[in-house]
């Protein structure tokens, strides 16, 4: 069988590809205005809307964002303007927003960075809002944490501290240092 035509076509494709890549400059991070990692992304999604359900079909979480940048090996997801909502047995639990979110494995851990606001939306718990500059979510470990200053506002009052560890339900909270609390008068 004569393979020269095949070689000619593949050579042509290679040249076109090279021209396209080098000509266009390829997806280098500077052009994307994202130099957070320096590595070239392998895909980008504009306007992300994601739903995730458990084996029982109940909603686990939804995630929205204006742009998702993915980089392979090691995997890294960067989401802009994330809006994450966590559910428990289909019931809303938390809503998290920030400027950006970064994760190597979204099911086990993610960092939310910049103007992080977490609002507890559980029906059987008092409303509660947490704000900080960055927050780490570990769904599998049922934990949120940050080394930064945190302010928590609830119907009972307001508390702040540096360094936080809490469960995802927000039922158990620990502030590590410099704690300031103000309870509203109770009677």
């Amino acid at each position: 069988m004569d393979t020269r035509p095949l070689l000619r076509v593949s050579g042509l494709l290679l040249i076109v590809g090279a021209l396209g890549y080098y000509g266009y400059g390829g997806w280098n991070s500077e052009e994307l205005g994202d130099s957070s990692d320096g590595r070239t992304p392998d895909y980008i999604v504009d306007g992300l809307a994601l739903w995730e359900t458990g084996p029982d079909g109940q909603l686990l979480r939804t995630a929205n964002g204006t742009q998702l940048i993915h980089r392979p090996s090691p995997e890294r997801f960067d989401l802009t303007q994330p809006d994450l909502r966590l559910y428990d047995k289909g019931q809303p639990m938390w809503r998290l927003t920030s400027l950006t979110a970064t994760s190597g494995d979204p099911s086990s851990e993610a960092w939310f960075n910049g103007q992080v606001i977490a609002v507890r939306t559980m029906p059987n718990a008092a409303p509660l809002q947490l704000s900080t500059s960055r927050l780490r979510i570990e769904p599998k470990a049922n934990r949120v944490s940050t080394p930064e200053r945190v302010t928590i506002t609830s119907t009972q009052g307001k508390m702040s501290g540096t360094g936080l560890t809490a469960d995802l339900q927000g039922k158990n909270l620990q502030l590590s240092s410099a704690v300031e609390v103000s309870y509203a008068p109770s009677r």
Binding site: Q174, A178, E180, V181, S182, Y183, P185, S186
Partner: peptide, 24 residues
């Protein structure tokens, strides 16, 4: 006094909403 807000400061604190307990 009871009509004033309660202000607390401490080195660290733990809150257990289920047990209704805050430890400073």
């Amino acid at each position: 006094d009871a009509e004033q807000p309660v202000n607390i400061s401490a080195d660290n604190a733990r809150f257990d909403e289920k047990a209704g307990e805050a430890v400073y």
